[in-house]
Design a protein around this nucleic acid. Structure first.
Length: 475
RNA sequence: GGUCCCAUCGUCUAGCGGUUAGGACACCGGCCUCUCACGUCGGUAACACGGGUUCGAGUCCCGUUGGGACCA
């Protein structure tokens, strides 16, 4: 087999969404698995809806996910001369023909067909009966200064078979297929035509795309035949659905790749989650990039659409969060701390802080959110917790603990624990009876990491200040 | 409306003619424990329906139903 060449061909009409990212990922993995080439092509022929911002967003998203492409990005708007020359060639060979039907006529015929409950298809008014009949027609029309659309002279008889690597053999009746418009009257080429011209020109061997394109595939295969080219392999991956089984869209929540970056997800986590949505390898859930490249095959891609499940993504993200090297995590969390308006602490201390929280947060945003009492001295008081924990009975033990901690040296977990033990013994208290008030005093709430850890990370000065302040709150 | 695709726990899925139908997320409970988590142990929960083929069907075939895509 010739060396594998795949492509991802997004239209830059918006950000890169979850579904597109998965398509890109499958193309990337398939190419890497076979030691092939992964190509990026921007399908921006719809000038109305394509924007430079969208192009930028797509490139950024792919880079963030580390789906690095080997060729491109190619832009279809820069390739119009190629499309034109291919239109001319088809015209010359009699495989396409000029059509002078006006939009009004076509619309009227369409309505009539609909009314008669027939399939609205082009009726073939301008279609030549024999291929050679129209040979000079286009040139003649041009001489007369008349504009026309160019239609593909598609075979009306027989069947076209798509041997799909995922869906299997799918047969279409050629009689169902229309005489596709290849170029509009202003000369601009149409979507299906550009795709085929580009895929031929770029020597694409495997087209892996959403199964919303499956119905377009027989038309494209017919075009390959008209160009006397062998069609590539096709693999149509099922779509991603929202919780209501409708195609995933904005109303299901965040769908853009960059939104997940901003919400504090890791690119590895998104990739890992996305690859498992529609593909599986036995019971394995977590895959490194190297494993994915080694193990990814089209045979293990499922045929049915899948529902996007944010909770599982969260779990995958949590997996990466808790198993990450602390130093790396510290660097990754810093921008999120800054974004919240906190000063970014010095790295060694930041790592200690993170170590106490990493098993309690599922995203970087959550981590920063839970770190408020480390990052700021303005305690967010949970009034219920204050009322429950900071009672007159604990005033003396708290005072005693403050004194003991003041003398604790070195100020580490082991020695802090000793200070607690001393006070606990003196008042005959269980650990919980002292730990909870201290927890509230230091963090403002009844929920936090282990109390010795919190004290050690906070340090002696801040701990004592907060105990002082809390004692003043006790009636 | 026409054409096409799809169908195993709520969700992602394993299964490729003979299984007590497995795993993961979520959910529920036990343990651990200074709170919350982590961890750990256990539990609830699925082959859409109806016909065939076969000694035997989640698995193969046909239909029905349901969902989805495309064409306009």
């Amino acid at each position: 087999m010739a060396s594998v060449r795949t492509r991802f061909a997004p239209s830059p009409t918006g950000y890169l969404h979850i579904g597109g990212a998965r398509t890109a990922l499958f193309n990337y993995l398939f190419a890497r698995h076979h030691g092939g080439t992964f190509i990026l092509r921007i399908e921006d022929t719809d000038r109305e809806r394509s924007t430079p911002q969208a192009i930028e967003a797509i490139l950024q998203s792919l880079k963030w996910l580390e789906l690095d492409w080997d060729e491109g990005p190619y832009f279809q708007t820069e390739r119009f001369p190629l499309y034109q020359s291919r239109v001319e060639w088809l015209l010359k060979e009699g495989r396409a023909y000029p059509c002078v039907c006006t939009p009004a006529e076509l619309e009227a015929k369409r309505q009539a067909a609909l009314k008669a409950r027939r399939k609205p298809m082009y009726d073939g008014t301008c279609r030549p009966r024999e291929a050679h009949e129209m040979a000079g027609r286009a040139a003649e029309l041009r001489r007369q200064g008349k504009s026309f659309t160019v239609r593909f002279r598609a075979p009306k008889e027989g069947k076209t078979t798509v041997d799909d690597k995922i869906k299997g053999v799918v047969v279409f009746d050629n009689g169902e297929l229309d005489d596709l418009v290849l170029a509009r009257s202003d000369g601009t080429p149409t979507y299906n035509f550009c795709v085929v011209v580009d895929d031929i020109d770029m020597k694409i061997t495997h087209i892996i795309r959403g199964d919303d394109h499956l119905a377009n595939t027989p038309r494209q295969i017919l075009l390959y035949q008209a160009f006397e080219k062998q069609p590539p392999e096709f693999a149509h991956v099922p779509l991603i659905l929202g919780i209501d089984k409708a195609r995933l869209s904005k109303r299901h929540g965040a769908t853009s790749v960059m939104a997940y970056k901003e919400m504090g997800y890791f690119p590895e986590a998104l990739v890992n989650y996305l690859v498992r949505l529609g593909w599986s390898h036995g019971d394995q859930e977590i895959f490194s990039r190297a494993e994915l490249i080694e193990k990814f095959t089209l045979e293990e891609v499922g045929k049915s659409a899948g529902v996007f499940n944010p909770e599982k993504l969260l779990w995958v993200n949590f997996h990466y969060l808790k198993s990450r090297p602390l130093g790396q995590l510290a660097e990754e969390v810093a921008p999120f701390i800054a974004a919240k308006g906190y000063p970014v602490p010095e790295k060694a201390w930041l790592e200690r802080m993170i170590a106490t929280l990493r098993e309690r947060a599922k995203t970087l945003v959550e981590l920063v959110d839970q770190a408020h009492y480390y990052l700021s001295d303005e305690i967010r008081w949970d009034e219920n917790a204050v009322r429950k924990a900071l009672t007159p009975e604990v005033k003396r033990p708290l005072e005693k603990l403050a004194r003991a901690l003041a003398e604790t040296e070195p100020f580490d977990e082991a020695h802090i624990k000793e200070a607690f033990a001393k006070v606990l013994g003196e008042f005959g208290l269980a650990l919980g009876a002292l730990a909870q008030p201290v927890r509230v005093a230091l963090t403002g709430s009844t929920v936090s990491p282990g109390i010795y850890e919190v004290i050690a990370v906070l340090g002696k000065k801040r701990t004592l200040e907060r105990l002082e302040a809390a004692l003043e709150k006790i009636p």
